[in-house]
Write a protein that binds this DNA or RNA. Structure first.
Lengths: 217, 217, 217, 217
DNA sequence: TATGAATGAGTCTTCATTCAT
DNA sequence: AATGAATGAAGACTCATTCAT
């Protein structure tokens, strides 16, 4: 398996493929309802009804309602960091010089996360809502971020700061500004105003431009 | 009463001053619990307990649990738009030339919203969480935004675009980028990492800089 | 005061005249609501609202909700027996020979109770409904019946049986048949089908006829 | 199945036979308590306790407390009209000449309803009490009466009036007098004075006699 | 494995009643 | 006398979870 395949697999791996049909129905129903009404306001009986299974069946697969939530949300948190996890991705940037310039890197990440968000709106809604109330999720999030995202990002930033491409702000500030802008874009695009008329290509370009200019020396 | 006084009053008016003591205790307890555990996961009996009142007392003042939420959240939504509502503010910008340049305007808004956020973290958490699940809140939000914020913002943007201070992006794009960056800052500062070590002054400066550069022609 | 006056007074005495205005409002509201929704389904706060008084005011005049019910219902039970209580009534029948025949007696009672029912539909509804669930009311009812109604009635029945005007059934049977027919008429007329088109005079005549024929030897 | 069997089945069909054991316990407990204390004054927790089930179990079988009431009362209302619904009954009267005379018809109905009442005192109490406060029940009652009872009754009355057996009163008046007398008897016998010493056979005879004489030309 | 009846703790809300003003 | 805020027990109903089938 080439590194590219690993990367692709990570990105595309459908966790649900390994689930029994009933389980898939349960997870699907739970995703829909959690994202519509929130975890706390969704009852297991509603999930069972929408999934077309008996109430007891949910608890055969997931010990508690919270387990079901974690089973759904945990892999999403992992996937949020996927582009930074993939070895091939990291190597490409510095070794192969493909992403030599900052813009290319930004675009890769943004487009990639854009596509990811596009396909996973309900899941992202759930993460956004529930992370606030479940310390386990926060921990998991922080861990992934600290272990997978931060190191690479810091390397990128130092690298481009050394090259004089971006301002000499503290890493965390650069990080905050960039991530904030990216997430702000995706949240606006897919969650707050998903029904607006969007010229996605142009907006992506402008957002990249905004970040680049915003950070340039 | 001078215009400044009106402005200040708007900003500082404490809705809770008109409430009976028991009501204040209830509202206070509800704010704490809603922001900690979320509206749906907070029981009225818990609120009563923390407020030190009988459960029935809650319902004497608020017909339903949801009424209590709305009583708490609605004024916050209004206040979010306060700097744009205040007449004195708008006039100053264009008439008195005080905020002649874009930077000044941005700083006024950012500092002002920063102070507001600082004093209202739990309330903002509640708004952020609950807006997603309560259409009434969404409607109220949209209305305030469309009526109070949008028109002024559009005037600012056109004004500065004509002066060649900011890029010729569609209004909505400029709006999105600015608001996203501001909110992203405040959310990171007060909600995601409130316990980090922050050099607030520097961060505000950098954020303003980022926006200015990001949008400049 | 003549005996007739006493009779009249008994029939017309308005218990509510001695009540304070607030009390009258309370009683009036309670009568309306008890008869519409039943005692158990009517809340004191509803009564207070409809009466236009504070909730506490009810309890200043009536120690408990049940006291209010009893204050309303007790006098009605007494009044149900009024024609038999009035001395003048009893005397008239036998002394003055006015009601010499059975038909005259029946008509007097029926017309009199008809007028009483007509003016007191809500009160009668309440009695009918609540007697079943409040032993105090049952006791009060039985006492009045045994003390005031039964003796006179028995005298009437014996009297007419001796005269060969009515069948030689046991007193209780005659009583049951007569009372049942009278109450059945009034309940049908005023409670079950108050909105039907009634030729009251004719129905009264037919009902009397039915009883007379039904009992005649 | 002969017509008689169908008739018998209608009369005896026990709706509770199709219920699960828990459901039977619930219904049984509810019947007892509703008839003792009234629907509004009976709490679901009391029913659960007396039924020996968890409170939640009630709501698994009956969506609301009112549903439980309707499930109990609705079939009773239907059964009240059963003797008129049974085809065999109607046919017998006119075709087979069995009930040729009015007395026979009255006796059949009265004895039959007497036995029904005897076996269903608590249910009849509930109907009598709750019909007043639940429009659904009133509607259901009126419908059954209009569709099943009235037409047959009118035929009987016309038939006997043509034969000169009963007075030429309006149908509704005859109906009222007969029904009133029958119900009055049953209510007195089973609800008001169930503990008195009753010579049922004699009372039935006298009641029939009373009706016959009362209506005869 | 899947079911769904059963549970009883817990939910929001209402209630009759009290009491300081 | 009248008020109405406050109470906390009780009400109908829901919930996540269990378990016998």
């Amino acid at each position: 398996m080439t590194e590219y395949d690993a990367f692709k697999e990570l990105l595309e791996s459908d966790d649900q493929e390994q689930l029994t049909p009933k389980q898939q129905q349960i997870v699907q129903a739970a995703i829909e309802m959690f994202s519509e009404k929130g975890y706390a306001s969704t009852s297991t009986s509603e999930i069972a009804k929408r999934a077309g299974v008996a109430e007891g069946t949910i608890f055969r697969h997931y010990k508690t309602k919270k387990d079901l939530l974690l089973a759904i949300v945990s892999p999403v948190i992992t996937k949020l960091a996927v582009p930074f996890i993939a070895q091939s991705f990291v190597k490409q940037v510095f070794k192969e010089g493909e992403h030599e310039d900052f813009e290319e890197l930004l675009r890769t990440i943004l487009v990639n996360r854009f596509e990811f968000a596009k396909k996973n709106v309900p899941l992202l809604k759930i993460v956004l809502q529930e992370v606030a109330f479940h310390p386990e999720l926060q921990d998991r999030y922080k861990e992934v971020f600290r272990a997978e995202v931060l190191p690479h990002f810091e390397r990128f930033i130092s690298h481009y700061q050394e090259q004089g491409l971006i301002k000499d702000y503290p890493t965390e500030t650069v990080l905050r500004l960039v991530i904030t802008t990216v997430i702000g874009f995706l949240v606006t695009r897919f969650i707050i105003m998903p029904d607006g008329e969007w010229d996605d290509e142009a907006e992506i370009d402008r957002t990249i431009d905004y970040i680049l200019n915003g950070l340039q020396v």
